[in-house]
Design a protein around this nucleic acid. Structure first.
Length: 818
RNA sequence: GCAUAGGUGGCGAAAUUGGUAGACGCGCCAGCCUUAGGAGCUGGUUUCCGCGAGGAAGUGAGGGUUCGAGUCCCUCCCUGUGCACCA
């Protein structure tokens, strides 16, 4: 009886050996030789209580395969791992179970570590980081202070230290600044919610509707980087759909601001006052279609527009009550309500004011309506119902005039607007500044204090990290304040400048903070004097390949690019690293439940990686996830499918442990192993892992049938190594090698050996295959055509007719057209 | 609506980028082995016609280019994903 393939014995043995030998440790190198390095990055996981999802290993295995190949090709590979551990789910979980988030995190990290190690990934565990480690978040806080101490210089188009600011009110220009913004407020839970917790306008905790409330929060001025974040996409290799999502998110549009004069309606004007006197203001609108201005038959302002309040206080609006009611409703209206109302628009006319269309000089009415957004453009639009669907809907609903007018020339209109001094060319963006405060406990404390004498004072680096107080109670408050606000001992402190009494900022940072720069920390994870040493950054950065989920394309990916650019501008990142953190970005897709629906606890179709590893072992699991379908396409889990992979590896095992090794082998076999080497190598580079696996299967079938020489077996073992690291290591050592297969040289395909002496020539008549004949590879065109016409079956279809054309494709076919 | 990825057997999918459609795997069928098989091995498996050699049809629909189209062009339809009353 032959020995059976026992994944578990093999896997734990080799995992221990690898860890002992440290074969996956990256060595810092000389920046002058950085072409030898390869930095591959996966999005570090959030260590949730649920443990690893089967989706995680899909991405990690894919990069693991690429990194193993690069390592075998002689690259100095950095493939690190860490934990993005601050955040809401852990905090909520800890509150529910009355434990500390610190303890929950430690437990979850231990569980994730066990799971990841059981899968045999070649991570460099010596560089493991954790965003909740004070030694890590010290630098997150330090970076926040650098944002606080910087402004954006429009002329130089980069951030600079605030000390270099020339002009009035530098505080108004800091990259980290405080401003009133809306937060999501759940009236039943009496708690401020993060956007993630209020998706769809519904509270994640109680399911009730979420309202908007105003609160002063810390913001980061990402909008200053809108153009650079957009333009620099040209310099990086991201998937097209990633680029387009970022482009959409930034949402640049070009057009013009146009001023509309406002006066009382003609009918209300007293005969004594002249037309000029009656103008009491202007409303500036933003439009991308100034060429349609003749068709602007009314003006619409956002209910929150400042001028509405002004006119109300000046008593100009004759239906004030109605307007105020509408304003009040619009402001408290939740996103959910707005979505529900998408069947019709709402709005109120501002009676007592009229606008003048500068193109036609006609009086047009002014409305407020919540389909006009306060935060975009100028918060006011000229409505052109003849050309704009939304304006048409509104006009239809309220019986406003729709006038078809000819379009003007765009360039001429822009000049006309500018020459008359009634506006200017303008560019707007959808991108908003980044709301950086969270009223939560489990995040990095914002390292600022408020002093009556000195105002807002940043902590100095020697006071960092500002530790999160270790307390028993950290539940959210009814007031919308951070739980830290209730910890008076922690809040009351002394001012770093004047030593007088001061209060700490009690908001914490969002979990996007720690993940915005973790890839920098991997370059030098233990440095206590800097977030990373410049020489090490020069060697490792930028990241050569970054893989992650599409769900992080607009937030994390954009935030971290922005964060990196600020550090770059402020010269904390060496110039030679470049102004983009990631050279290449790829995205994996989801693994769905059986039947193609999303895996979820409620549907009961969640597959636990532990179960799969226990039943089949890591190598089978890894290969199954690669074979499941194209890496960038969603794929349903199929428990039966994994059986096929099991058979495949068992067949490999038999080939190496049972078959007698022939001294010589067929030309086909030699050709096939080199073809396999070529294809597997190419497929790994292009991330076509599913076809790489099938190529390995084809080769295995051939070896099982025909037998294979030692050379072929060695070559195959190396090709298999990135996919099934444990099995290949076992086979490698059984072949007598003492060094790891993972540090052996990646096999190069020899194209002269792929070349065959004969090939199958396909013969087509009128585009249909009529025969296939074996011919010599160096057959001449004439001979090929001759042989083709000589074929009996071909003659049956040619039927003595004269071919109008005969095409010969070397090495492939002869096509005869009648 | 805008953007983006797709649509190929019973299923997951391949297709050297314009050259044999369905590789590889699942499932199914037959056979072998076995006390037994929901284990393993071997062979078969797009559909239709035919005993067979072989033939016909076939890549969401319809046109077009070409000796030749899953692939290129035009007009549509459907599905997934992201953003969305962004002026």
């Amino acid at each position: 009886m032959n020995e059976r393939y026992s994944p578990h014995e093999i896997e734990s043995k080799w995992q221990a050996t690898w860890e002992e030998d440290g074969i996956y440790h990256a060595k810092d190198g000389d920046p002058r030789h950085r072409d030898e390095k390869f930095y591959g990055l996966i999005e570090f996981p959030y260590p949730s209580g649920e443990g690893l999802h089967v989706g995680h290993p899909r991405s990690y295995t894919a990069l693991d395969i690429m990194m193993r190949k690069k390592r075998m090709e002689g690259k100095n590979v950095l493939y690190p791992i860490g934990w993005d551990a601050f955040g809401l789910p852990t905090e909520n979980f800890a509150i529910k179970h009355k434990i500390k988030p610190q303890d929950a995190t430690a437990k979850n990290v231990a569980n994730f570590t066990r799971q990841l190690k059981s899968l045999g990934f070649g991570f460099d565990w010596s560089r493991e980081i954790n965003t909740t480690d004070p030694a890590y978040y010290k630098w997150t806080q330090w970076m926040f202070l650098k944002f606080y101490d910087a402004f954006y210089d429009e002329e130089q188009d980069r951030a600079r230290p605030i000390s270099e600011f020339v002009g009035e009110d530098p505080d108004a220009h800091r990259l980290a600044f405080k401003a009133k913004t809306e937060i999501n407020w759940c009236p039943s839970c009496k708690i401020g919610l993060a956007n993630e917790e209020a998706q769809g306008g519904v509270c994640e905790r109680c399911g009730g509707p979420v309202e908007k409330r105003e609160k002063e929060q810390w913001m980061l001025r990402i909008t200053k980087y809108a153009d650079r974040l957009l333009n620099d996409l040209e310099s990086v290799d991201y998937l097209e759909r990633i680029k387009s999502q970022q482009t959409n998110w930034i949402g640049k549009s070009e057009g013009a601001y146009v001023d509309f004069e406002i006066r009382p309606p003609f009918s209300a004007r007293s005969s004594a006052s002249s037309d000029n006197d009656s103008v009491f203001g202007t409303i500036r609108v933003f439009t991308t279609r100034p060429d349609t201005i003749d068709g602007a038959t009314f003006l619409v302002m956002a209910p929150e527009h400042g001028m509405v309040a002004t006119w109300l206080s000046e008593g100009r609006i004759t239906n004030a009550k109605q307007v105020q009611d509408y304003q009040a409703k619009a402001i408290t209206k939740s996103d959910l309500d707005r979505q529900r109302e998408d069947k019709g628009k709402t709005g109120v006319e501002l009676k007592g004011v009229q606008a003048i269309n500068p193109a036609t000089q006609e009086e047009i009415p002014v409305w407020i309506a919540d389909y006009v957004l306060a935060g975009y453009g100028t918060g006011a639009i000229m409505a052109v119902p003849a050309y704009d669907e939304r304006d048409r809907d509104f006009a239809d609903q309220f019986k406003l005039p729709i006038v078809e007018t000819p379009l003007r020339d765009m360039a001429e209109t822009l000049s006309w607007v500018e020459n008359r001094g009634i506006g200017e060319r303008a560019t707007t963006y959808r991108l908003r500044d980044w709301v950086f405060s969270r009223q939560r406990y489990w995040g990095e404390p914002i390292p600022l204090v408020y002093c009556d004498a000195c105002g807002t004072v940043p902590l100095s680096i020697s006071d960092l990290p500002l530790l999160l107080p270790d307390v028993e109670v950290y539940e959210p408050t009814d007031t919308g304040e951070s739980p830290l606000a209730g910890m008076t001992e922690w809040v009351h402190t002394t001012c770093p400048t004047c030593k007088g009494p001061a209060k700490r900022e009690t908001d914490t940072m969002p979990n996007w903070a720690g993940s915005s720069w973790y890839f920098l920390r991997y370059c030098d994870p233990k440095n206590n004097d800097a977030f990373a040493d410049a020489e090490k950054l020069k060697y490792w950065m930028p990241v050569d390949l970054y893989n992650g989920g599409m769900e992080h394309t607009t937030l994390h990916l954009l935030y971290s690019r922005f964060w990196y650019k600020v550090l770059f501008d402020l010269e904390y990142i060496p110039k030679s690293c470049g102004s983009e953190p990631y050279s290449m970005r790829r995205s994996h897709a989801l693994i769905l439940g059986e039947g193609g629906i999303k895996m979820s606890k409620s549907k009961g179709n969640v597959v636990n990686p532990d179960d799969i590893v226990n039943e089949y072992g890591a190598d089978i699991f890894r290969i199954y996830e690669m074979f499941i379908g194209p890496f960038d396409q969603d794929a349903p889990w199929n428990t039966r499918g994994i059986q096929g992979v099991k058979r495949f590896l068992e067949k490999v095992w038999r080939v190496y442990t049972e078959d007698e090794t022939p001294q010589s082998e067929s030309e086909e076999c030699v050709s096939l192993i080199h073809k396999t080497a070529q294809k597997v190598g190419d497929d790994i580079e292009s991330m076509d892992f599913n076809t790489a696996v099938s190529t390995l299967m084809v080769m295995t079938n051939e070896m099982a049938k025909q037998g294979a020489s030692l050379t072929t077996r060695e070559m195959f073992c190396k090709l298999l190594a990135p996919f099934a690291p444990h099995l290949s290591e076992e086979l490698w050592s059984r072949m007598g090698y003492t060094d790891s297969v993972h540090v052996s040289a990646w096999p190069k395909a020899d194209s002269s050996k792929i070349h065959r002496d004969t090939f199958e020539l396909v013969i087509q008549v009128d585009g249909k295959v009529r025969d296939k004949i074996m011919v010599s590879s160096d057959i001449s065109e004439e001979l090929a055509k001759e042989k083709a016409l000589a074929s009996e079956n071909v003659q049956k279809f040619v039927k003595n007719r004269q071919p109008s054309r005969i095409v010969y494709v070397p090495g492939r076919l002869v096509s005869i057209a009648i």
